[in-house]
Nucleic acid binder design. Structure first.
Lengths: 151, 151
DNA sequence: GCTAGATCGTTAGCACGGCTAACAATGTCG
DNA sequence: CGACATTGTTAGCCGTGCTAACGATCTAGC
């Protein structure tokens, strides 16, 4: 019956993670609003800033979103002047997304603003708990990658 | 400089948690779609099913959402026959949200379906990692509660 | 008892995020 | 050169979230 117990554990854990993800994002949304950057835009901008110029399709795959959705997000970022489109010279179908210097600045500022709430909460944690939470975040990330590979 | 290091840790951790939350929800959305229940609806339904009859305002606060948003979500659940509104006899302003039996069934089925992906990923984890991830989820939940109390 | 204010929920209207279907433009290969 | 594949965009739908404004109801205070 130990496998039955594992299933129950997995179900309970999935529920906790699901609920935590929803509520965390709803909290962070408020801060994101202050910077004018929603979570999906911030996330995409982060990829562009740290991942260098990237095609729209790559960005869509990285963000696990369909191309039309990414077109929409990039258009928003472009109108805000945080990103610019540039056609590839060798392959006319591709459009490469570049971060502008404003985009880099806004990303850094947005990260700082976004983390304020979390940071003040994190500072109430002991060193042990901080390490444990870090470990949990790493495991969660690996879990998501594993889900992605499994389709 | 140790406090500076804590800040950097907090920033990096916040980024990881933010990114993980986004990508986890995007994955789970696909499963949620299969059951016809989006993440916010599933989350709200869960509160109604396990938290007994609840007023719309309580539900909105529990889900950290403004009343008009919750009105919309509840309307969707009601149209799907998962929930029903009932006026309070003592206070005519209140509307209590009750789960229907169909709502209970659908919630359970949705949870199972939703957890399939995660469960198969979780089963690739060792017992130690499972415990660590569970601890991380618990800490994350406490962190969110702490953020909520701090506004 | 009645009026003034507070509270609760809804409606209206906006912006964004996500999807599918359909299309145009470009590359590639037989 | 022509058929096919790939890339990105457009159009159109629905769900989520907000604020502003409103109607209905309760509660105080006079």
């Amino acid at each position: 019956m130990t496998s039955r117990k594992r299933e129950r554990d997995a179900l309970a854990l999935a529920d906790q993670l699901h609920s935590a993800a929803i509520h965390l994002l709803r909290h962070l949304r408020k801060e994101d609003d202050a910077s004018g950057l929603s979570a999906p835009r911030l996330s995409a901008l982060s990829v562009v800033v740290f991942g260098g110029p990237v095609t729209l399709g790559q960005l869509a795959r990285a963000e696990q979103v369909k191309p039309p959705t990414m077109t929409h997000i990039v258009t928003g970022l472009e109108k805000a002047g945080l990103v610019r489109r540039e056609g590839d010279e060798r392959d006319g179908r591709l459009t490469r997304i570049h971060a502008t210097s404003k985009g880099q600045k806004v990303l850094v500022a947005g990260r700082a603003r976004r983390v304020e709430l979390l940071a003040s909460a994190v500072e109430r944690l002991g060193a042990t708990e901080l390490a444990e939470l870090g470990r949990g975040a790493q495991l969660l990330k690996e879990l998501i990658d594993s889900m992605r590979r499994a389709q």
